[in-house]
Amino acid sequence: MAKALVLGNSHVAAVKVAYDQNRTLFGDIAFFGATGLDLAFTTVEEGRIVGADRACLDMTILKHFSPEAKVEYLEKYLAQGRPSRAVGEQFQATGGSARIELGDVSAIFYVCGASPYDFARAGEGFAPISSGMRRVLLGESLDKQFLLRNQILALRAQRPGLRHYLVGSPLLARANVKADAVGMAAVRQKRAAIQDLARNYLFDDVFMPDEAVLEPNLVATRAEFFQSGREHALDFQRDAPEARKTDHYHVNGAYGLHVLSTFVAPRM
């Protein structure tokens, strides 16, 4: 069984593509995905992650997970109270098994749209955030409102040795975000504060995009990492119609390789 599990929504595709192209460089990793916010419809049973028909959700939780999603899109989850498609089927299609057996897995990497580093997408812009306020915001986004909070807590109870890591998707696909010197000082401070604080919450650590993948403004992701990203995401989740319509933020295998090399591999 794999030592690491990478689990997420369509953003997993970038990491999966990179892994498939560079398999000899990395250890054994299992990949599973479910589209959009369908991962909420999972539960932990005897140390396994399985699909569920229902989930207790509210708009705040959905918005934290996918801040840029249109309200109408999120409302569908609340109105239907069901995943867009059975999660077991999606696990089967992406990982080859309807349930995720954790076996020897020692670390789970959750790859999805939400990350504390998404401060631009979360509407903070270049406004500085004090460390005190950042603690409040991290507490909200990770400890209280994270979509998979209950599952992670269950896993921590049932598999105490298992480590949990969060890999957020890129901050912004647009390179035209400009900041003056004051804004840049704020961005640097925000990044430093998040780096200091984020691992004190639900996750053992959180991936932070570094200067190698970011524009000089440290907010937008460099354009080269978006080339063909969309196709990869569709390929990985070829049965996910929502992904096709809302696909503006997917990075490519080059970005996935960066995630694998700088964050996943050192923690396996």
């Binding site: 270049f126 500085p128 004090s130 460390s131 005190g132 306020m133 004051v182 804004g183 000082a185 401070q189």
Partner: peptide, 21 residues
């Protein structure tokens, strides 16, 4: 405006500069 204050003088000054802008 900051119930717990700022973590450092630098943090305070960055916040103030942004506020003035």
């Amino acid at each position: 405006v900051e119930p717990d204050g700022f973590a450092s003088e630098d943090e305070l000054r960055v916040n103030r500069a942004f506020h003035l802008n």
